[in-house]
Design a protein around this nucleic acid. Structure first.
Lengths: 339, 339
DNA sequence: AACGCTAATCTAAACGTTTCGATCATGTCA
DNA sequence: TGACATGATCGAAACGTTTAGATTAGCGTT
């Protein structure tokens, strides 16, 4: 900018004024300056600007796994929204790992991001501390955590799973296996609650042996399913609480020589693009990813626009049960006998 | 840092020296300074540091669509690699749109990213200009473009498609439909070349009516497949040059009342996690996503480590044909007759 | 002619670091 | 004892912006 100023025989203040339109500058100087900018090929240094302004027009986004299709979609939507608004987004993947996550959030804050969208793992104590003294607006995505009282957009997980399990019960299933993610994130609590609620509403017992826990990965779903399928009185249906794990479920079913839905019904949380075209077409709980991403972006953009003091807003969206053909009615049809 | 210096009754220079280990500071002062840092909760401002140092420890990554599973995986790998190396990554999605992409690259350069990984759309002229005068190392991902002579990691697309088409021919297919992405990116050229080469090697004619173009999206695959299937003498197999489009292909096959592989064989480029568990299990060309991501990251990290003047390196990796059961042998089996 | 008002421009301080060279005490050697 | 190397510490400039306030010029009023 100094060079531009010299070339145009004006002060840097005038150049700045012209570039930012913060003050009127005469047509004559404007022209000289614009010419100089072109000649020199000047580009404003956003870092220097950030330092002075205290704002980077950059936000941080942390998710556990970008390869989980739910997060893939949400990240995509959020990225687009901030792109439109002229913000850059720094992406971090925490791999569901607590320390990694805290490090990454610190890294983002060091870089002075203007805001943060966080799909949090673990409890919120540290997050709260980190964020409080950075004084940066945060919106929680997909997961709330106690102790952190900020904007959030989540799903009504309990209701969504309630609907799915009730659907299975209505089909005649009585023993329904449930594969949960680990309990240190809020949705897993709520989804489990939905499962229990549905059983209870139907007067079915909650059998501990039908509930398994995994760590969100395919292999966990595989192992859990293997265990469920080797039960003495095995379930006629399995519900998997997330998407990567259901792949493991399907692999286990295949490996054990059963088929879905003939021998066992399967449903899961999170829809994916292929669910319509391959067999079995999986019955899923679809999250409104577009809305989730947009709402999260809007909440943060609103804060960034200056609305800092409004009380925390928590948006709860509804899931949608996508009924396809991976669950069969029990009754006249041959119910699989215990192995 | 000023506050820390005051609290510890030292100069800022000493604080900086201690933090960065750039000079020895006495145990006594070290302790005072560290105490002050803790008391104040001091965090170094990375923006100010970047301004002074001329490096941001941030890289830019642009891909067309993060929802394309190939890019999802590659982005994930790249993100992890730079995370390990202490770099942040800014992610942009260009939506295969040329102007968007140039804007985004400029945005990234304004923010003084230290390097760029680009899955480029369109020709390289502008990219070259932009990058030349920013003087930032660039590695091209998945796609090379003429005029830009930098590090790159790509697939041997021609060979990969050659293998896939040859496989179909060996199964007895003679009329093989080919759905290409638009030609403004290099891989689509090469894949088409592989298709033609395989036909030629088998002495089969290259029939223009069997080749369709789409714009990478599911809907394009759908439309292209509809056209292929309504040909007077319709193909017995279809190869789709990317993953989102093959979903469209499968939907079209379903909607028209055919089934795969009984009535028509399907194969495509890019593997995905579900390909193993649902029926039909799609025969695909799998790209070594892990290697691609790592190599790209390594090339850039090497440049960032100071190796600026080495000649451009171009890495070509091999695809792998994953044979499953979406393609059936023709012969004794009922070949679908023309509609 | 003196005054004030407005518009255009400029000077200089600030943002929070890093780093070069200067300063100063201390110990070593001739 | 003086000269000098050594090691620790500091002062101040620099990175490239923004911006408050000062300055200047032009112009209409009284």
């Amino acid at each position: 900018m100094l060079h531009v100023a010299e070339a145009a025989r004006v002060s840097v203040a005038t150049v700045s004024a012209l570039i930012n339109g913060t003050a009127t500058v005469s047509p004559e100087l404007s022209q000289r300056i614009e010419q100089a900018i072109r000649d020199i090929g000047y580009k404003r240094n956003a870092i220097a600007r950030s330092l002075k302004m205290g704002t980077t027009r950059t936000i941080g986004l942390t998710v556990p796994h970008i390869t989980n299709p739910f997060f893939t979609d949400v990240v995509s939507v959020i990225q687009q929204a901030f792109d439109r608004a002229g913000y850059a987004v720094m992406l971090c993947c925490t791999d569901e790992h607590l320390n990694t996550q805290d490090d990454q959030i610190r890294l983002l804050l060091d870089r002075m991001v203007d805001g943060l969208i966080v799909a949090r793992v673990g409890d919120g104590a540290i997050l709260k501390r980190i964020v409080d003294d950075a004084n940066v607006p945060v919106v929680l995505l997909d997961r709330v955590c106690q102790g952190v009282d900020t904007d959030a957009v989540v799903l009504d997980n309990q209701r969504a799973v309630f609907d799915a399990i009730t659907y299975l019960i209505d089909l005649g299933h009585r023993r329904i296996g449930y594969i949960s993610g680990s309990f240190d994130i809020s949705p897993m609590h709520d989804r489990m609650a939905g499962y229990r609620e549905a059983l209870q509403a139907a007067g079915l017992p909650a059998e501990p042996e039908l509930v398994r826990f995994g760590n969100f990965h395919e292999v966990d779903g595989y192992n859990a399913t293997m265990q469920l399928l080797s039960l003495h009185d095995r379930p006629s249906a399995i519900f998997s609480a997330n998407n990567p794990m259901v792949i493991g479920t399907m692999k286990a079913i295949r490996d054990i020589g059963l088929s879905c839905p003939e021998d066992i019904s399967v449903a899961c949380f999170d829809d994916f693009p292929w669910s319509d075209v391959f067999r079995p077409q999986l019955t899923t709980v679809a999250q409104p990813v577009q809305a989730i991403g947009e709402q999260a972006a809007n909440l943060l953009l609103d804060r960034l626009a200056g609305n800092r003091d409004a009380p925390p807003r928590k948006l709860t969206l509804k899931g949608r049960l996508m009924i396809r053909n991976s669950c069969r009615p029990l009754g006249a049809t041959a119910q699989s006998v215990s192995a």
